[in-house]
């Protein structure tokens, strides 16, 4: 009994908290210190004269303009995809869901050059009929999963997927002898992609959208499905419940997803270089400008451009933080 009492007494003797706090502080200082040193090294390398010179350079001005426009377009596109896809992944249980969930992250995990190379091959090496064939196969596999999956009486989903598969298969037959590449077809309707400014957006999109989808899924996960259930008991269809009850609650998530996509697009380099190229005044964005300046042996110019990128990234972060702290929607 005395032994038990002695053991119990030990519980009340609190160990000091400072070793743990010291550990937290060490990790925080190490990481934040590294980030600050990186930024500081950039700032110290840049001369104001060099910064003024690059900002007056018309090619760099074009590059800044294309960066802002392409990042904004990519962010908007990413949000358009992330809002529904994040909801699908957050709310629905179906066979193949884990596969789809993993597939979303693939662009993030792939080496950036591989993303660019894949786009280049898709647009310039794969014929339309081959593309339709791959899609038809994918739709039929998805329809099979949906049919034998847990979607219950919702036969409309496998039916629609199978129908899309049939359309694609019909496309293969109709385009049997067609050797046109996607780039040729899109170029024919005035939407050239490869080594074109539009290609910059497409090169930025896969990774940026992956981040946006992940952010939106997390936002939806934080909203209880009970809201939709109650809304549906009041007469809403699933889509109406999403629009009227869920979407207003994930406003901050949408902004966060857009910001994440914008910031990610700003830093994109490999896929742009491979798919859109780095042609001065045409497909050059800030990340490729830095690369071009380094290639020309102009380290000071590259550092000045890096500073511009850091300024843009911090500015967008502060703007969004400001917007979120002022409320917006929950």
């Amino acid at each position: 009994m005395t032994e038990v009492k002695a053991e119990t007494e030990k519980i009340w003797k609190q160990r000091p908290e400072w070793p743990f706090l010291l550990f937290l502080l060490f990790v925080a200082v190490s990481y934040v210190g590294l980030v600050l040193l990186m930024l500081g090294a950039n700032v110290l390398t840049v001369s104001w004269a060099e910064l003024g010179r690059v900002l007056k350079d018309s090619a760099i001005q074009d590059s800044i303009r294309l960066t802002v426009v392409s990042c904004t377009a990519t962010a908007i596109l990413s949000v358009f995809v992330a809002v529904p896809l994040g909801y699908l992944l957050s709310r629905y249980q179906f066979r193949g869901r884990a596969f789809l969930d993993s597939l979303v992250d693939v662009p993030v995990l792939l080496p950036p050059l591989v993303v660019g190379l894949s786009l280049l091959i898709l647009f310039n090496r794969v014929s339309l009929s081959e593309g339709c064939g791959v899609l038809a196969f994918g739709f039929f596999v998805a329809a099979g999963f949906a049919f034998f999956g847990t979607v219950g009486r919702r036969r409309i989903i496998p039916f629609t997927l199978a129908l899309l598969g049939v359309f694609m298969a019909a496309g293969v037959i109709m385009l049997g002898g067609e050797a046109s590449r996607l780039e040729e077809v899109l170029g024919g309707v005035g939407l050239p992609m490869t080594f074109h400014p539009l290609g910059v957006v497409l090169a930025q999109f896969p990774v940026a959208a992956a981040f946006a989808i992940r952010t939106m899924k997390t936002s939806y996960d934080q909203v209880s499905p009970r809201y939709e259930e109650v809304a549906m008991s009041l007469g809403c269809q699933r889509g109406q419940a999403f629009k009227m009850v869920v979407l207003p609650q994930v406003g901050r998530g949408v902004v966060a997803a857009g910001t994440m996509a914008w910031a990610r697009a700003l830093g994109e380099f490999g896929p742009i270089l491979i798919f859109a190229g780095a042609t001065r005044g045409r497909t050059e964005v800030l990340s490729t400008s830095v690369f071009l300046e380094i290639n020309l042996g102009n380290l000071a110019g590259a550092a000045a451009l890096s500073l511009v990128m850091i300024f843009m990234a911090v500015l967008i972060l502060l703007l969004v933080r400001g917007f979120l702290s002022k409320g917006g929607s929950e």
Partner: peptide, 22 residues
């Protein structure tokens, strides 16, 4: 038995209230 929730004409007051924040 298999009708959609909104088509049943039933009003629910759930235990956890679930008011819509917006």
């Amino acid at each position: 038995t298999h009708a959609a929730a909104g088509a049943r004409g039933i009003g629910l007051v759930p235990q956890d209230v679930v008011l819509f924040p917006s």
